[in-house]
Design a protein around this nucleic acid. Structure first.
Lengths: 149, 149
DNA sequence: CAAGATTGAACGCTCAATCTTG
DNA sequence: CAAGATTGAGCGTTCAATCTTG
């Protein structure tokens, strides 16, 4: 894999995902969805923590969280131990909704990505993507919420 | 893999690659490098063909090619069969230089990506990325040049 | 007419700086 | 002082429209 291939591949993957996201949630910025996904998988977090995990700039996370709260998808509270920190809390209903969504419209973008892949190889590819995702995320020291149904 | 995870993963992959590319080729736009990589792997192509394969907008490819030619990395010729078409030709020396480059500085960005991956799984992950790349590219009907040394 | 060049608006992001406030 | 909000400049890209030219 060449460096340009890596860049290109990354662009295509996020492009396909982005197209799907825009279809399902028109008018919602991608950064908001990424932040929501991050919040769903983690314990209540400060702006800085979210920025570190997602890789977005602090200013971007700050505005994204503001929009998320405006949408009623999460709440912000003051950290009782450090009043300066804004802790973003996502209600469990959102986690449940997210899980429900996964089961219905999961296939679409992955079908597109795997269209030209040998069917017998598809599970291995998906598994590799998941591992890669988890490993990269781990690099940002995230704490995964074991989200018991 | 959730849709937001797909988008995030894609962003990280291209971000890591982009950082490496900027380090090695400061002042060169990413789109130029992607187009160069595309040209190296394909027979001489028109602007439209490059745009279809890379997924970049026609206007972006047009300006990127202009800059590439200015750098002396490729030449444009008129298609003898259709004077309207601009055929972009990359000299074999560039292919050789690209290959030489692969062998030297290949490791860097992939080290970073695979840092938190179980070492025994790394070959499988890299293989999966290559397959995925080739499959997605195939979707844009590219003609790979068998680049005999 | 179709291929490509060119240009300008819009978008989303980063970066950097500044302001507010525990 | 540090966390976060806010704002503006800069960058790269898409989109859409227009112009040029075989």
């Amino acid at each position: 894999v060449k460096v340009t291939e890596l860049i290109w591949l990354g662009q295509q993957l996020s492009r396909v995902g982005r197209t799907e996201a825009v279809r399902n949630a028109p008018g919602v910025a991608i950064a908001e969805l990424i932040v929501m996904g991050d919040l769903i998988d983690n314990t209540p977090s400060s702006i800085t923590e979210i920025a570190e995990r997602t890789g977005y700039a602090q200013s971007r996370v700050s505005t994204a969280v503001a929009q998320i709260v405006e949408r009623g998808w999460a709440e912000t509270r003051s950290d009782p131990e450090d009043g300066r920190r804004t802790v973003v809390v996502v209600p469990d209903e959102m986690r449940a909704a997210s899980r429900a969504y996964q089961q219905t419209s999961q296939p679409r973008p992955f079908e597109e990505i795997l269209a030209n892949v040998d069917p017998s190889r598809r599970p291995a590819i998906m598994e590799a993507l998941q591992e890669l995702h988890d490993a990269l995320r781990q690099g940002s020291s995230s704490v995964v919420v074991e989200d018991g149904d």
